[in-house]
Design a protein around this nucleic acid. Structure first.
Lengths: 223, 223
DNA sequence: ACTAAACAAACATCAGACCATTACACTGGC
DNA sequence: GCCAGTGTAATGGTCTGATGTTTGTTTAGT
């Protein structure tokens, strides 16, 4: 194995073993490179790789730290990869969403707070007939994120957020606008909010299944 | 933005725009670094980061290539991150698995081939009373992977594989062995195979829910 | 006590050298 | 003509050392 990959493994092991904890600061690059037995250049490659997947946080002029390692950090790394897979595979991604999002809504229905309901309603009010596609995408993003976060499971939220990255969303809403299907989609959002408010897990789940399937059906035709 | 991060973005954009396709070879490091306007060292950091998340494949003495970008490559990158999140958060991970795996089994029940059924049976026959924990983990890994792959959705398989990384599995089987719960777990595996063979999606789904919930219950007590 | 300048520590970047591996073309033998 | 072995060029892997930039801390002055 290359020295850089060894260094990646060693740093990872230091975190798994507990030698390094969330928030801890790593030794300076020079010192760490000597300890691990490689040059500073090679160590920097390892650190950069761990920074991209949000394991390390490098602060210039200060030092390098282990991130909080919260599940939400998984999103960024996953989104990066999902963004690159956008053609045929989009239907597979939707199949996973159609499993996860209704389940998330059902959980959310039992746990959602009045404040979260209010936030959902607020996102609806930012929309009218003149709203741009970009604003619709933004609304959609927040709407679905509010539901997944109401399910109170960071992993669930992270995976779902990554699977519905904004580049994918943008393409879909552009299509929905052309098909004049925006009204129907927004009406579905309203119905979902009402089901969540009544705590009707079963209805919320079914509504989400219908909601996602509708988009999936449109996509299947468009491709 | 730092030059290295710029380089990462530029390379990513080259892939999204189609300037670089799966399997394509990048220009040599020296040439690419001049084209992007940064030193070879800094470019190498960018390349290393993209290699870790399986976007690039670097072959020493040959060149650097864009990977196939298949969804299964998502697994490795995700596993790397999930491996680092192993304490309290394990229950959240199980909640996601309990949603996805029964759904995957239901889909698998309608699509599974006789060959895949035979492979599942074969994994059962490698096990007896004297089997070591390591071998049990290996069996479990293959068993669940066969089911997710029978669902014929690479994204579903990737996400599930990542969420049930082998480090997590190892801990659990060690616990099951101590609790003498190995027999019951293996019996559940057998029942799942039979449901899949009969194409009974509903039963397969329920069996998976029970199967995962049992482990989840044990975990909740153990923590 | 407060402020601002100086300092030190740490990461950012670069240039250039040399090593190790691989692919490929060439050559000789069959 | 075909194949195996060989050599070479191309390419990534690694190291060293220097310099720039940013940040946090200390210190001198008010």
């Amino acid at each position: 194995m290359a020295v850089t990959d060894e260094a990646i493994t060693k740093i990872k092991d230091m975190i798994i073993s507990g030698e390094l904890c969330a928030g801890d600061r790593l030794p300076p690059e020079k010192e760490l490179s000597e300890k691990l037995g490689l040059s500073r250049s090679s160590l920097r490659e390892a650190v950069k790789a761990l920074e991209i997947i949000r394991v390390l946080d490098v602060r210039r002029g200060d030092g390098t730290y282990v991130t909080s390692l919260e599940p939400k950090l998984l999103t960024e790394a996953m989104t990066f990869i999902v963004d690159l897979h956008q053609d045929e595979s989009i239907l597979d991604i939707f199949e996973v969403r159609r499993i996860l999002e209704p389940a998330a809504a059902a959980i959310a229905a039992t746990r959602i707070t009045p404040e979260q309901i209010a936030s959902l309603r607020a996102t609806m009010e930012t929309i009218d007939d003149a709203t741009s596609v970009e604003a619709l995408v933004e609304h959609d993003l927040i709407f679905h994120q509010l539901i997944t976060s109401a399910a109170d499971n960071s992993y669930l939220a992270s995976v779902l957020d990554a699977l519905s990255s904004s580049t994918v969303r943008a393409r879909i809403w552009r299509g929905l606008t052309q098909e004049k299907a925006v009204d129907r989609t927004l009406a579905e959002h309203t119905a979902i909010i009402e089901a969540l408010e009544r705590g009707d897990a079963d209805l919320a789940k079914s509504l989400l299944t219908v909601h996602i399937s509708a988009v999936e059906y449109w996509l299947r035709q468009a491709l």
